[in-house]
Simulated assay, not measured.
Amino acid sequence: MKGQFLTDRGKVRNYNEDAGGVFYNSFGQLLAIIADGMGGHQAGDVASQMAISLIEEKWENGHQLDSAEEAEQWISQAIIEVNESIYTHALQKTEYEGMGTTVVASICTDEFITISHIGDSRCYLFSESVLNQITEDHSLVNELVRSGQISKDDAEQHPRKNVLLRALGTEENAIAETQSIEWVFGDKLLLCSDGLTNKVSDEELASFMNSSSDIKETGKQMVELANERGGEDNISLLIVCHDPALKEGETSC
């Protein structure tokens, strides 16, 4: 199993409120996670870094997860604990009032992946040359699309496109969505913040994921395209490759 995380400040923002990483527990199991922070006076980067650091520590000190049910329980509990920490931290310091972060995380084993998310950072699965979005954005415009009030094309230009209905740390109780699906050798997982998906279409993402380039180079090309199209937001992505070659000690993906 191989994962690659990339993040970029973009062309407009003065600092990067995104955070993320690829982490392994003592049993060699992989956790991929991206957080896109929000809040004034750089509070967003505090929230996203808190989310990543707390989950990383919990993961690296955790036990082996042998089933999808165990993985779902673990990530759900981790999200609850991180939400409490961020929410409490925001209450204690006025400059952090209202801060929060999106989170999309995946526990990746040989047999299955367990994905949990809150907000509009996304997870895609690339399998058999097809890219499928696994998560549903917790956003106002996505709810309008789902209810049939606007089209997907309308959503792209909607003035309240960035309004989230859920985030981590903004309320005392956070409700994340968690699911597990099977995957096989050759599949690839893409986690990303909206700084990427607001600039690069799903069709273009599929083309990148189908590339024969290694995942680091593929990720760089995605970031470059988002920046070429304005780069108004921070851009973060993470690719995990389920490659049989890696089982044999090879490093290609």
Rank of each mutant, 00 (worst) to 15 (best):
F5Y: 15
A35L: 11
G21W: 13
Q29A: 02
V12E: 13
V12M: 13
L30F: 00
T7M: 14
F5P: 00
G44A: 07
A51F: 02
N25E: 02
A43F: 05
F27P: 04
T7R: 13
A32I: 09
I34D: 14
G44T: 09
S26R: 15
A32G: 15
G44N: 07
G40N: 04
G37M: 12
A19C: 09
F5E: 11
Q42S: 15
G28P: 13
Q42V: 13
F27Y: 14
A47K: 02
Q29P: 14
I34M: 14
Y15P: 00
G37I: 13
Q29D: 10
D45L: 02
N25T: 01
N16Y: 01
D45P: 07
Y15R: 07
S53M: 01
G39W: 12
G10E: 06
G39Q: 11
L54H: 03
K11C: 15
S53Q: 07
A47N: 08
A32L: 08
A19D: 13
Q49E: 15
I52W: 01
D45F: 00
G40D: 06
D36S: 11
H41T: 07
I33P: 03
E17D: 10
H41V: 07
A51Y: 00
L54C: 01
Y24N: 08
G44M: 08
N14K: 14
S26F: 05
A35G: 12
A51K: 02
F27T: 08
S48D: 06
L54F: 00
F27R: 09
G21V: 12
D45R: 09
Y24W: 04
G39I: 09
F23Y: 12
G37D: 12
H41N: 13
F27L: 02
F5M: 14
L6M: 13
G10F: 09
G37Y: 12
I33D: 12
R13E: 08
S26Q: 13
G39P: 11
G28W: 05
L6Y: 14
F5G: 04
F23S: 03
G40Q: 11
I34R: 14
I52Q: 02
Q49D: 12
S53H: 04
R9F: 05
G40P: 01
G44Q: 05
A32W: 08
L6H: 12
